[in-house]
């Protein structure tokens, strides 16, 4: 808001309302700037029809795209973060959780449950970047471990769809140790010879990238997704120069041999189904 807005705010309130309506119906592609009608982009699974840019989506949209209609059952939705350190930065952690819950209707950056991918019952863990930057804390780690345990119990495959800035600072070492917690559980899943597919979406960074996200039997990324251990600003500061074009993007990781494939969102469900089918021998 600039100074002029302060003076004109009251008189232009009706005008503001119409202005606010616009983004709901028309979505602008961040990559090519073309305007798209929301129905159209929804039908395209939020992939820009002009330039193939993959718009960040929430958990509901993700599940709608990937899971057979009416087959998803959420588990562990009652897990809630507590504030073990009584952490306060500019705001308290308790307050941040409260605000993010109001915004997203959830208590965690992860939704976990069981659903069918073209008929194959699968354990799913989906990150929601809009809840505290998809950060990994105690609740998220516990949900992942329980999903792994359910996969073992029911002899199913596991898919984790990451979108995260990394470990949640407000939980400090508790958050850090979710990295070893989830990795230890994945070792047990591997012992059971059950498939784990890791789907990396924009962005997958830090402690999430450096634990379960890079431990998939198959690692898939969405086009253009930012994926890496260290943040770009930190790397720039450390090396004292600009980063090469496309650095830490999905295609870069594919070229370096760090992931198996980059898959368009419109092909994702078929890809996941086919991989689960062949790995499970179904």
């Amino acid at each position: 808001m600039n100074l002029l807005d302060l003076f004109t705010k009251k008189s232009s309130s009706t005008k503001q309302a119409t202005k606010n309506e616009a983004p709901a119906h028309w979505i602008k592609c961040k990559s090519c700037n073309s305007l798209m009608y929301y129905k159209e982009i929804e039908n395209q699974n939020y992939v820009c029809p002009k330039c193939d840019f993959h718009i960040r989506i929430g958990v509901d949209e993700r599940l709608k795209i990937l899971v057979d209609e009416g087959t998803f059952t959420e588990y562990d939705e009652n897990l809630r973060p507590i504030d073990p350190l009584k952490f306060v930065d500019k705001k308290s952690y308790v307050k941040r959780v409260e605000e993010n819950s109001k915004k997203t209707g959830k208590f965690s950056s992860v939704v976990s449950g069981e659903g069918n991918i073209d008929g194959i019952a699968t354990q799913l863990v989906v990150f929601d970047f809009s809840f505290m930057g998809g950060s990994l804390g105690s609740v998220e780690g516990e949900k992942i471990v329980r999903a792994i345990n359910r996969a073992i119990e029911k002899r199913q495959g596991l898919i984790i769809i990451s979108a995260s800035g990394g470990a949640r600072m407000q939980e400090s070492t508790f958050a850090l140790m979710q990295m070893s917690k989830t990795s230890a559980a994945l070792a047990r899943l591997a012992d059971e010879k059950l498939p784990y597919i890791s789907l990396l979406t924009d962005p997958t960074m830090g402690g999430v990238s450096a634990s379960f996200a890079t431990l998939g039997d198959i690692i898939i990324a969405e086009p253009g997704a930012l994926i890496g251990f260290a943040g770009q600003r930190v790397i720039k500061q450390t090396i004292g120069s600009d980063l090469p074009d496309g650095f830490q993007r999905a295609e870069f990781l594919l070229e370096k041999g760090s992931i198996d494939m980059v898959v368009n969102r419109n092909e994702m469900k078929k890809t996941l189904h086919d991989l689960l089918k062949v790995l499970l021998g179904k």
Partner: peptide, 26 residues
């Protein structure tokens, strides 16, 4: 901390750390 550099990312710093977490757990 683990080194935040170009080469480190190219050679998959994330995977190197994650793999150790998994392997050391067992």
């Amino acid at each position: 901390g683990a080194y935040p550099g170009l080469g480190a990312e190219e050679r998959n710093q994330s995977e190197a750390i994650a793999r150790n977490l998994l392997e050391l757990s067992q």
